[in-house]
Amino acid sequence: MSEFTPPGYMRVGDVVMSIIRHLRPDCTEQQLSELLGEEAHRVFDEALDLLHSLLFEGAIAGFYNQPVFNGLTEIPKAFWLSVDAGKALRDGEYWPFGPNRHHWDRLPTAPIFYKAEALRAVLAQRQRALSPPHSRARLSNAGAKAKFDWPAYEEAYMAEVRTRGFPSELNVKGWQSQADVVRYLQELAQQDGLDLPDSTAKPYARRFLERAALDDN
């Protein structure tokens, strides 16, 4: 099968690496390349799960080539809910000949292409949503330490998740929602002698919830 990729498009390997860089913004290229064993599989599966979600939600689309008909053709969104979606994602190939899968070994599959610009736009939008707004009160003067120790708060929150489970309606009262996480962060801030407003805590609570959910997958 030809390895040619049309200009402006990407194949699954490059797409997954782009998503991994998005999910692991603090990792250098060398650190990413040195991932081994279970950690490498976990990071890869995490990126593939996000790609699957974006495709099913219609945030981005996959395309395959129909040379006899219309050239590059969008894969139907409903396909990403089918039992064949996982194999197509991992292999980077689409079966355009219908549900008769017992013929797969005798008929060719088509490589899946993704629009590079569409992927960049979606990841940039997600990054903006995950990044809390700058707080004017966060720094007391130029070069000063951040007022709230967010890395320590996130580490404490993740430890709490490992102990109490993920905040959800199925959990105990007081550990069921983003509002409960906001209150938890405010308690941590109070231990530091700080007053943490709801408006400052909410974006961080949302980001911590999303990261914990990704780690759980």
Rank of each mutant, 00 (worst) to 15 (best):
S168A: 12
E169T: 15
E169M: 14
E169A: 14
L170K: 15
L170W: 15
N171M: 07
N171Y: 04
V172W: 14
V172H: 13
V172F: 15
K173M: 10
K173F: 11
K173S: 12
K173E: 13
K173G: 08
G174A: 13
W175P: 14
W175D: 15
W175M: 11
W175G: 13
Q176P: 15
Q176R: 15
S177H: 12
S177V: 09
S177R: 12
S177C: 13
S177P: 09
Q178W: 03
Q178C: 11
Q178D: 06
Q178E: 10
Q178A: 10
A179F: 08
A179N: 11
D180L: 02
D180C: 02
D180K: 01
V181C: 02
V182G: 01
V182A: 01
V182P: 00
R183W: 05
Y184E: 04
Y184I: 04
L185T: 01
L185W: 00
L185Y: 00
L185R: 01
L185I: 01
Q186Y: 05
Q186V: 03
E187G: 15
E187L: 07
E187P: 05
E187W: 04
E187M: 07
E187Q: 12
E187S: 14
L188D: 02
L188A: 01
L188W: 00
L188Y: 01
A189L: 05
A189S: 07
A189T: 02
Q190R: 13
Q190K: 13
Q190T: 09
Q190V: 07
Q191V: 03
Q191Y: 00
Q191I: 01
Q191G: 10
Q191R: 05
D192S: 08
D192P: 10
G193C: 05
G193S: 05
G193E: 04
G193L: 06
L194R: 14
D195A: 07
D195M: 06
D195Y: 06
L196M: 12
L196T: 07
L196Q: 09
P197F: 05
P197M: 04
P197H: 03
D198E: 09
D198A: 08
D198K: 12
D198Y: 14
D198P: 03
S199G: 10
S199Y: 10
S199K: 14
S199R: 15
S199F: 11
A201E: 02
A201N: 02
A201P: 03
A201W: 00
